[in-house]
Design a binder for these strands. Sequence first.
DNA 1: AAATATTGCTAATAAATATTAGCAGCGAAA
DNA 2: TTTCGCTGCTAATATTTATTAGCAATATTT
Lengths: 341, 341
Amino acid sequence: MSNEPNPTPARVTMKDIALRAGVSQSTVSFVLNGNEDMRISEETRARVMDAVAELGYRPRGAGRPARDEASRVIGLMVDEIATSPFAAISIEGVQETAWKHNAIVEVVMTGGNRDYEATALRKWAADGVAGIVYASILTRKVAPPDALARHRAVLLNCYDAERRYTSVVPAERRGGEMATRQLIAAGHRKIAFITGENWMEASDQRLEGYERALRQANIPVDPNLIVEGNFLPSGGRTATLRLLDGPVRPDAIFCANDLMAVGCYEALKERGERVGATMAVMGYDDQEIAQHLSPALSTVLLPHREMGNWCAEWLLSPSEGAGLQERLECPVVLRESHMRG
Amino acid sequence: MSNEPNPTPARVTMKDIALRAGVSQSTVSFVLNGNEDMRISEETRARVMDAVAELGYRPRGAGRPARDEASRVIGLMVDEIATSPFAAISIEGVQETAWKHNAIVEVVMTGGNRDYEATALRKWAADGVAGIVYASILTRKVAPPDALARHRAVLLNCYDAERRYTSVVPAERRGGEMATRQLIAAGHRKIAFITGENWMEASDQRLEGYERALRQANIPVDPNLIVEGNFLPSGGRTATLRLLDGPVRPDAIFCANDLMAVGCYEALKERGERVGATMAVMGYDDQEIAQHLSPALSTVLLPHREMGNWCAEWLLSPSEGAGLQERLECPVVLRESHMRG
DNA sequence: AAATATTGCTAATAAATATTAGCAGCGAAA
DNA sequence: TTTCGCTGCTAATATTTATTAGCAATATTT
């Protein structure tokens, strides 16, 4: 025997299975592919399957490709989804449109780990996926890995600085604007705004939309009515108390997200205010808990599902080149809390 | 030209790319694989990449397999994750253990669609994935697709009737028991229970655990203290009011999930009860919103991440045969609400 | 000028699986 | 008994990509 180190054991191939089962390699191929055209006896089939189980054979895509076109696959790479159901809704959106095109969606959560991203992209390159969705939980600018460039790719809820990739994000500014217009249409004039985290673009843009709507209605933007929150119920509660104790009494409060609206409700109840009667409240992002508030919270939807639908459609349909930026509408849902007595 | 219909256009192969770029097929292979050992001029590389972009070549796994072992992949098939962040936590659990074994996780959400399941399993067979996790949002009995049998597979948060597959589920009965024991340990004797949906096994088992703990403490199970809920805040609120107006006044209320605990808090506040002082409350499943309750809710955790970790470990490590059923502990987290004044 | 080393490729071959063409054996019909 | 049809395979070939061995051209050294 050679003095060289033993080579790593070879992968089990159909030839090994054939040897063990006492059949030919082509018989193994017919059995594993469930080819209906080829007659294989039950006894032979069982011997092949036994050998597969015994030797631990796992099929791989090497060798001569099959004549039939394999089902298409979209790869979806997301930084993380555990902290938010929203990413899952976007994924569902990608999936339902992809399935209409007979494509399945494989999701990989990378946690932003570059090695993980590179490994997944290598895998998807080997698979020949039809396209890749690169998704972010928070709307933000991203720097996709270089390897993404060799695929047909779209950015979901994010965009790149050079605009090399097509991207789709929510129209946050316009959402903030439309929500504020609805409060104005309901008769409110002293509309307060509770911000989220300032470093989040979504928060900034919602505030900008609020300010734009006020200006267009010839209502001055009053700094006393803009209070800093933190996207949590506790922040919404604290900010609401500050507004109620401030120099200008608002008649409506626009919270930059629904969790803060939960805290806002608590603070208003503490101070004897009646939501939708003595004080109006508007939320944003339509989180599940907000649907349990009473009176029912009016809020702004984020187009998670629609962004997902749009990505799959763009990847799987003939379309123009890369570099588009699409902004999807954030519809306002009017329940009860935006009204006034 | 033949009178027969034109055949479907052949897939673009490396040979086509080579022709277009004016190089050999092996040069194309070197460029696309980023092989560092082979010297290719920048000019040649650019011509190959231009041809790839122009002809729309997408790599696939056919032909001679590469010498190096590709990174391993675990396929994870889940019915749906949009309605619950819990599945995402389980997926993260699978992923963090898999990554320690240098495997990535590809997730497919099938919505229970059998065609989708079959397509994904075919894809994963062609890929030679190292193993498959078949996951369910609700703990339940499932009938996995036949094609799952040809893979090394584990059931997450579900199990099959024939016990052909290894499975991992939460130890719900024990969780209910431990939580009740903690209430007893805090001095409570008239402990109420608000059930979830009766058709859900988790609800049944939590109730059984509650009853077992009472019996072991020689406290009679009082049907007046067991009220039907519905896993929603509204159901928790209604059930709590019924308990307060019932013939037996409880000194603790064990809610079968945290959303009902939210409603329970509301009802107690309405009736002037002080949580953690005049009335104790225990929740279950540690949902995000419950972390914003004041006083802080004591609750039972579900081992989402641990179940995920366990699945990846089982798939990627040498281990015994299929057919195990593992039940993972549901730890009780004591915050403030379980106490009494 | 001649010899040697390096660069940047390619032709040939290898590897694994899919598919086709063909055949031995068996049973049924003439 | 002979012929024909069917069954259940297999040998050979096809296909695509990965890898090796080798070479023309160029640069460097002697």
